[in-house]
């Protein structure tokens, strides 16, 4: 189980104020980059708010992240055009290569895989987007290269950080 002391602190601070749930969750995400399940449970206990209510809030706002995000977020478009052009097979290939399902991150948090609705470049279908960079007419054999390209980027970043 993760360390929930941040949640305890934040929740204790906001406990007495009405309608402050969002603020508390906000602060946790600021520190951790997302709101882990254990932290949400801790907030529920400390602020005496049902967990179901907390998740109503957490899942209502796109702002809140419930999982540690991967550093390269791969979005596979499953809009109609992309779907018809075989993006489902591309998605399968990503899943196989990364060993994760859609909506999940690799255990080292390097990659996160998700599906998105039409990203507005149907002319290039099938389309994938990684951290804002768009790849058009993606084929199954491209998948490996895309992952490689980003793995190298992440490694370089890490090196720079280490020498930083």
């Amino acid at each position: 189980m993760g360390d929930t002391s941040v949640a305890t602190q934040v929740a204790t601070k906001w406990r007495k104020k009405r309608g402050s749930l969002i603020m508390a969750l906000h602060e946790i995400q600021d520190v951790k980059g997302y709101v882990p399940w254990e932290d949400a449970l801790e907030v529920a206990k400390t602020m005496n708010i049902p967990l179901a209510r907390i998740y109503e809030v957490l899942t209502f706002y796109n702002f809140f992240k419930l999982e540690a995000p991967g550093r390269a977020v791969i979005s596979v478009c499953t809009g109609t055009a992309c779907y018809l052009k075989g993006n489902d097979k591309v998605l399968e290939e990503f899943k196989k290569e990364l060993g994760i399902n859609e909506g999940e991150s690799t255990s080292d948090h390097s990659f996160h895989l998700q599906c998105v609705r039409c990203v507005g470049c149907c002319g290039l279908a099938p389309v994938c987007v990684v951290n804002g960079k768009t790849y058009g007419r993606v084929t199954i054999s491209d998948v490996h290269n895309i992952i490689d390209e980003w793995r190298r980027k992440i490694e370089e970043e890490d090196k720079e950080l280490a020498h930083g």
Partner: peptide
Amino acid sequence: ALGYQNRGLATRISPAN
């Protein structure tokens, strides 16, 4: 036990998360 999860078209009734 139950609550609303997500919003819009993705809304669903279920326990937390």
